[in-house]
């Protein structure tokens, strides 16, 4: 999944190159960020990316329907791609367990990408660590089953968004440590030097495995459009990104 997100983020800037456009999904990815940091928009962008030409359907799990579709990431909203995204709205943890446990009974072609938004809401319902571990493991198992059904070396990616709290209490910390064991790849969305009329974020992708850490500068225009640029220090073109004054590595 890390590869799909990397493609989404790389497309926004000049750094995007064709050679990175391989269809592999990459390892399961956990997307972390505070409320309103654009997690849903990025998930949706990843869904559109994975619904591209010649690729299987996408299964998008979220607790409630969108009020409006998130604005794109510079690409037009292609109805053909949109049609390939199947939304399901498990209203409770119990329903989510049922959906994942019975995923092999669902007819039709297996998805090439499984997305879940708002994992923290499902975990909050039943904070027992073993239940959290089982829910997470079942997400991985469901994606693994889809991969098995896709066959021919094709994998179903998995990308899960989790809202992080400003003040981490011990329960959240335990969950996060547990989740990080199951998700080799992680992407953090951190607020960074907000400008007037927009807010800026640093998207930091740890792809898992041996890949290098990559960073992007994400801003939301006042109309909701998400703008992505490579993080200045590594793009080699400081003028392409805003906020170059805060470009120091952490």
């Amino acid at each position: 999944m890390a590869e799909t997100l990397k493609r989404v983020l790389s497309r926004g800037g000049a750094a995007w190159s064709r050679e990175e456009n391989n269809p592999a999904a990459g390892p399961p990815l956990l997307l972390l960020g505070a409320p309103g940091s654009g997690k849903t928009t990025l998930l949706f962008a990843a869904a559109l990316e994975a619904a591209g030409e010649g690729q299987g359907p996408v299964l998008f799990l979220t607790r409630r329907p969108f009020q409006s579709l998130p604005r794109g990431t510079g690409t037009a909203l292609d109805p053909m791609r949109l049609q390939k995204i199947r939304f399901q709205y498990p209203p409770s943890t119990r329903e989510l367990f049922w959906l994942l446990s019975s995923a092999h009974e669902a007819p039709g072609p297996a998805p090439s990408l499984l997305l879940l938004d708002g994992l923290e809401e499902y975990l909050a319902e039943d904070p027992e660590p073993q239940k959290a571990a089982y829910l997470t493991a079942l997400l991985l198992d469901t994606a693994a089953h889809f991969s098995h059904r896709l066959g021919l070396g094709r994998d179903c990616g998995l990308m899960v968004a989790l809202q992080t709290q400003e003040e981490a209490d011990s329960g959240d910390f335990l969950h996060l440590a547990l989740l990080q064991r199951y998700f080799p790849a992680q992407c953090w969305l951190q607020p960074d030097a907000p400008g007037p009329g927009e807010h800026g974020l640093r998207a930091c992708l740890e792809p898992g495995g041996l890949g290098p850490r990559t960073e992007w500068w994400v801003t939301f225009r006042s109309d909701g459009e998400m703008m992505i640029a490579p993080w200045p220090t590594q793009a080699g073109d400081p003028s392409s990104g805003k906020g170059s004054s805060s470009a120091g590595q952490p």
Partner: peptide, 18 residues
């Protein structure tokens, strides 16, 4: 689970996860 590291026993919950 066959695909990833998970067992439903108490030892897994306590010694491995916690």
């Amino acid at each position: 689970l066959a695909s990833c590291h998970y067992c439903s026993c108490p030892a897994f919950a306590f010694s491995v996860l916690r």
